[in-house]
Write a protein that binds this DNA or RNA. Sequence first.
DNA 1: CTGTTAGCGCATTCAT
DNA 2: ATGAATGCGCTAACAG
Lengths: 373, 373
Amino acid sequence: MVGMRDVAREAGVSTSTVSLVVNGNGYVSPAMAERVQAAMDRLNYVPNELARNLSRNRTNLVGVIIPTIRHPFFATLTASLQRALYEQGLRTALCSTADVDQDVSQYVDMLRRRAMDGIIMGAHAVYPADYWSSIDRPIVAFDRFLGGSIPSVGSDHSQGGRLAAELFVRTGARRVVEIGGPRTHYQTAAGLNSEPLGSITIAGQPTFPPIRYHLAFERTLLAKRIRYEYMEIESVARMEEFKDAAHLAFERHPDLDAIVAPDLAAAFCAQEALRRGRSIPGDVQIIAYDGTYVSDLAGVRLTSVLQDFDGLANALVRRLVQVIPGKAYQGAGAADQPGAGEGDQAVSELISMSLKPGESTRWTGSVQELLSR
Amino acid sequence: MVGMRDVAREAGVSTSTVSLVVNGNGYVSPAMAERVQAAMDRLNYVPNELARNLSRNRTNLVGVIIPTIRHPFFATLTASLQRALYEQGLRTALCSTADVDQDVSQYVDMLRRRAMDGIIMGAHAVYPADYWSSIDRPIVAFDRFLGGSIPSVGSDHSQGGRLAAELFVRTGARRVVEIGGPRTHYQTAAGLNSEPLGSITIAGQPTFPPIRYHLAFERTLLAKRIRYEYMEIESVARMEEFKDAAHLAFERHPDLDAIVAPDLAAAFCAQEALRRGRSIPGDVQIIAYDGTYVSDLAGVRLTSVLQDFDGLANALVRRLVQVIPGKAYQGAGAADQPGAGEGDQAVSELISMSLKPGESTRWTGSVQELLSR
DNA sequence: CTGTTAGCGCATTCAT
DNA sequence: ATGAATGCGCTAACAG
């Protein structure tokens, strides 16, 4: 293997000079640069990143921890994350817990051992209150709280829930069913922080895990005296559950006239409705919550409350880079916002959701206004 | 940061002893091991993998190159790969080309610079004939040929195509439409190897890229004088195309009575058929080719010719590990097959496909036999 | 069995 | 602007 010293010898210079031209850091006279470059070409020199990594104590690898990459939601998010990371010169290590049947702690260990520069935590895990903060390495959380000073980014589910609920209110829904994730996740999310479930403010910071969506949705509907039911999905990783849930929703609540559900479940609901001879959106209105490509697979184009995947990814990566020692965020961010340099240092950041019109809900005049929000 | 020498000093031993207990390699007296362990705990020692990597010239990272992780097919494959890799102590670097809008060569560079121990190449790319072999680092190809001695693994599409065709033959299909990937991929796959398109043997090795499926399918049908059309999808990365293709299939061939298509396209076809008031499988039979969870989203459970994702992943990873210097495959493999140690050294390996019964095709007596193959 | 020692390949002070 | 020297933290011969 040809190393830097070989190149140096070939070019008749020292290794440090070679290093400089390889990394384009300090100033090297054009003549020298030329000679070194020629030597590198001649010897077919390829820099060794292992060595560079050890020197700079960095990997340029970020772990993305999610339940399963097979789920379209996480696949979409991961795709956006990969792009956002790449724009910062970072590579993506895929760390799905369910696909490998492995605990999150294995990935955290890699972080500790410096096999990764940081992790983006988007999977469910129950740990003592100080577990995450005690790691003391770059971590950001997606759609959840990991405690104290660990930054987190997520969609503004409070707003999303309200959006969905108001759409149903304005289109005259009377009997609404919500299909959602495990309630235990909500419990632990709030419980570990010793906050009552009803409270949606933690440590003075906005709170965004799905519970907010749930609460905002429920609250808005009940205020209008619309009947409302919650149906729980056990595991996000088992996709068959979505199908069962769709079936059960109609079985248990034959008189339902409106459903909001994660888009995979929403797609199944649409099929179930049609199978039962109930028209969409005449008899049953459906809102897909999330808005991946799946919402187009249902037969009808599903109206959806969609998450801004690119926005989420950008925010997550920006936050992560901020906590990686000696790393600066590249591109539009804090720098060009005068005075905003240290502005958004709140530990959590909310990315707003939007309404994507489809054919699965009615569109009265008063609904149009929701779209422009 | 506390390093090995600190631990050594604390335990009153030398660094090499510490190294031995950390890695559990050589023999250390239990007493020593105990003392070292205690020192490590006391000092909260965490080994630094960057240093270990440099020493051993290894990353334990494998790049999985695919077009896009958003596509359910590649998501499913990637999930299986991640598991298979993890079982060999390897981590997964996600390298999708379309999601990042980046050339494959960037990832190959990482491989060259030793940022990864190897790559699994599952994306389309056009390079000169000797590009891949000249890299001279661990590479295996998925469903394609990269030239000379680079191992490749893929589904036995020849068998898969025959399976689909024979099912249609036996259920009396008369007018069949196949929806498939870009023909240019076929062309280059064969073209670069200077092989006529009709030939499906390259360098005496079995050939498996999708062209085989295509050819086997076509051949079987034409032998029975069944009318047959091919519809091309331009880009695998743009999922809307599947929807358009489904629409076009019915538009261009109103008299079709059987379709085989990648499962996303097949799902759309099912919806399109139902929308046009054509019953499934009465008027139109549909076979989903691939068999990810998507084939269950169509409303009817789609009959599918499915790829053995775990089998593919295991084979890919086994082959890759074989070409990683100084690395041995863990678990069931060559070792316990007496005499098979060096047995399957053919450059390409075919994983067989199977038929998954569904509601989208008819099931006559003579069809049952196909299932047991 | 354990300690000593010499790298792994590059970054990066410092003098010059 | 360049070069010589030192260190990153660990592994693996080799010697004892």
